[in-house]
Simulated scan of single mutants.
Amino acid sequence: MDLFGNNTEWTKNLEPILTKYKGRKHPLEYHNLYQLMVMVVLSAQDSDANINKIAPALFEAYPNMDSLAVSNSEALIPYISKVRNFGTKAKWLLEIAQTIQKDEKIPLTMEDLVALKGIGRKSANVIMREAKVPAQGIIADLHVIRVAPRIGLIQETKDGIKAEKMLMQVLPREIWGEIGMAISFLGREICRPQPKCPECPINSICAFYKKIKG
Rank of each mutant, 00 (worst) to 15 (best):
I179R: 00
D66Y: 06
R121L: 06
W10I: 04
I212K: 14
P149E: 10
I80P: 07
L116W: 07
E60D: 05
P134E: 11
F86G: 09
E111H: 03
G180L: 07
E189I: 11
M166R: 06
L3M: 04
I183C: 13
P134T: 12
V70R: 07
L153V: 06
R150H: 15
P195L: 15
M128E: 00
N72D: 13
S47K: 08
K211S: 14
G120R: 06
W92G: 05
P56V: 05
V38Y: 01
W10S: 04
P27M: 06
R173Q: 15
I96N: 03
G214Q: 12
A44F: 08
Q169N: 15
L33S: 05
A115M: 03
N72K: 10
I54F: 12
R188M: 15
P16L: 09
G5V: 01
C206E: 08
K158Y: 12
V40E: 03
R121C: 00
L28T: 00
P193N: 12
S123Q: 00
N52I: 05
Q101H: 07
K20S: 11
N13V: 02
K82I: 00
N50V: 06
A182N: 13
L186F: 14
F86P: 10
K211C: 11
P63T: 02
E156W: 12
I54M: 15
N7R: 09
I54Q: 12
N125M: 02
K82W: 02
A90L: 11
N203V: 14
T11Y: 04
A207L: 15
I106L: 01
L108Q: 01
E178L: 07
M65C: 04
A140E: 12
L113E: 02
P201V: 12
G120N: 01
H143T: 11
L36V: 05
S184L: 13
W10R: 01
G137M: 02
I151S: 14
G187R: 14
P195R: 11
P201E: 14
K122Q: 08
A44R: 06
S71M: 10
E199G: 07
K210H: 15
C191P: 12
I202V: 13
V144N: 07
R84G: 13
K105R: 11
N125K: 00
N7P: 09
L58Y: 05
E15Q: 13
V38C: 03
V40A: 00
L153G: 09
S43C: 06
N72G: 09
M128T: 00
R188H: 14
G177V: 08
A49V: 09
C197Q: 08
N32Q: 04
A148F: 07
G87H: 13
I127Y: 04
M168I: 00
V40R: 01
D103G: 04
P27C: 05
L108W: 03
T88Y: 11
K105T: 03
